[in-house]
Design a protein around this nucleic acid. Sequence first.
DNA 1: CTGTAGTAGTACGTCTGTCGTAGTAGTATC
DNA 2: GATACTACTACGACAGACGTACTACTACAG
Lengths: 111, 111
Amino acid sequence: MIGSDVIRGYTDIMILFLLLNEPTYGYEISKNIKHLSDGEYTLKETTLYSAFGRLERNGYIESFPGQVTSGKRRTYYRITESGRDYYRDKCREWVQTKKLIEKFVDYNEVE
Amino acid sequence: MIGSDVIRGYTDIMILFLLLNEPTYGYEISKNIKHLSDGEYTLKETTLYSAFGRLERNGYIESFPGQVTSGKRRTYYRITESGRDYYRDKCREWVQTKKLIEKFVDYNEVE
DNA sequence: CTGTAGTAGTACGTCTGTCGTAGTAGTATC
DNA sequence: GATACTACTACGACAGACGTACTACTACAG
């Protein structure tokens, strides 16, 4: 199982990635992440929506109301230019982080 | 810069890795991590010592007093069998996590 | 027209790991 | 006796993730 401490700091990157091409909304993102991870990781709803709040406060995403289709009214989010920059930075940070952590992982132990 | 949110969950793996072959003590671990990361990442002292406490409470490491060499008396730590198991689990988790996160990283953005 | 399932999101409080700041305790050096 | 270096320790703050519970709205079966 993938622990949440380990993923902390990467919920932002996941959400922004899914917003890169088109605006979408919380419930869909949540399902996409679950699907993309083959069911191995689920972003909890509370975690997701608190991330939206954070990202919006920082100007990385913008929200707008969607029309009702089925169920409750959706709130859509779109990524901003500054959000794209932030995403790029986070991707670069990932590359660094990966390099760092791999120095402490003994792959002989992971047969 | 590598943020601490991103590293959270990997301090344990770093510390245990450095204990795999021989017992050592806090200050040395701290210097080793800084050195191994080419100065790119520093484990703060408070973070390190709180990790020691956690790892010892969980039975992953054991402490014993070292002799005084220069400066304050050192507390040495050695890894336990259960600590080795935990380290292996964490390494496996890393492999999974890496796979997951890479699905959300656009490498075209990281020239 | 009632009940259940699915969609979509809120509210509230807790926990844990990291960090900032500051201080302690000892040796060495000048 | 002042400073520098080693090696911790104490205390409190903060942020992100999570558990639990709840609201609101649609669709559809019976």
